[in-house]
Design a protein around this nucleic acid. Sequence first.
RNA 1: CGAGGUGUGGCUCAGUUGGUAGAGCGCGUGGUUUGGGACCAUGAGGUCGCAGGUUCGAUCCCUGUCACCUCGACCA
Length: 479
Amino acid sequence: MKENKEFVKEVTDIEEDFAKWYTDIVLKADLADYTDTKGCIAIKPYGYAIWENIQKYLDKKLKEAGVKNVYLPVLIPENLLQKEKDHVEGFAPEVAWVTKGGQEELEEKLCIRPTSETVFSNLYAKWLKSWRDLPLLYNQWCNVLRWEKETRPFLRSREFLWQEGHTLHETEKDAKEFTIKILNIYQDLIENLLAIPVLKGEKTEKEKFAGADNTYTVETLMHDGRALQSGTSHYIGQNFTKAFNIKFQNREGKEEYAYQTSWGVATRLIGAVIMAHGDNRGLKLPPRVAPIQAVIVPIALHKEGVEDKAREIYEILNNNFRTELDLRDNYSTGYKFNDWELRGVPVRIELGPRDIENGVCVLVRRDTLEKTTVKLNEIQEKVSELLEDIQKNMFDECAQRVKQRTTIARNMDEFIKNINENQGYVKAMWCGKEECEIKIKELTGASSRCIPFEQEKISDNCVCCGEKAKKMVVWGRQY
RNA sequence: CGAGGUGUGGCUCAGUUGGUAGAGCGCGUGGUUUGGGACCAUGAGGUCGCAGGUUCGAUCCCUGUCACCUCGACCA
């Protein structure tokens, strides 16, 4: 295939400057745009459609798990936010406040929610009476605001969209099980919808959520080898239920504090899709989440019968797939090919006079750019097969990268060498002390991603201090 | 929040030793095209990031500020 140098120049080279490549793609694939409000992006239709597909998939899974959707206020009175000590300490630096209503100074300032544990907890204290009310499984799809200093579209913006689930349970065991159940739903979402393999595990004490007893995470690895925390599920225990007095009468008639969880995934997942799959031609969307799964590009549109045939094919395909018919007459065919590749559409269908004469069309897959000629009367099943194959292939390619970029380190020299040469994940033993975690970060730039559920023994001793190791930890430089 | 960088049509940039701005791409219109970013003609579009200051005069010099980018610290 002839490489078009001019085009490649238009998008920053992915190997040369990944950060620039990323923002290029966000803008050029028409996912989002900057606004005059710092740190707040405008999500454009094509980007929002990805989010809608994520929502649709996840919402169904959550409902199957018994979760119900609610909506709570965006403003939180100061006293509520301050009820749980660790929580307020964790979030205070990045909270935005409303201090005035019209011209009047408020008696009590209101914070714009950075997360809603406090609001849920406050209401749960009112709503929970009996063990019969448990488990209480609520979720909300909403926006939150965190006063980030440094921002990037989708990955870290001040305002972002997410879902936050907040649940109450009768026992510690129930709550812990539910925390993991949600983590598994996140894994399913990210692996099966977004085609990105996850690393599952528990956060260290240092990295866990402010106010939680345990934080579990699904981590993903981006094209450049940096890790992205893609979803978290927290076992909150009784920290909030005690602070907010959330009690129920148990089966023996005694009052007891409930056990709590919270969990969320955000529009950051869109960033993950971009950075995990993209290449020098632009975005590469997994079929299941792609707003447009197949695009028909008619060739020599003005020629007799081409448009009619294209419309006919469109009608057939659009019944089963999210299909687009590109009838723009102000762009050349070549331009359209590049444009749809930039936007990451999994399957392109080329249909020209020559094909129509032969009763065929050309299918081009975005992941490998491979072209195949198929009979028009078989197009539906061929597209279907291709979409499935692309979905699978994209996951496999990502998994391959994770494998290639995962190394082990028995000492700090190995650690530093590996992280510098290979980026990616480094597996190393850890003694459990925070000072070693901090030192490793200083020396390598890598933070602890998680303590994986699937442990393996690299060596007996902590990679940092050499003392007896407690856990195998996966480390990496993060976004 | 620390260190550095950049702000001139939508984009990439040029330019003015201080005298009020230009090119390519893109965009509109008409036409010819269409199998990997087509061509011809024609047209629209800028208070030179914003606010002060110096000056007869500031896009240019000075001060401040804001936004964006990169690298660190913090986070979904």
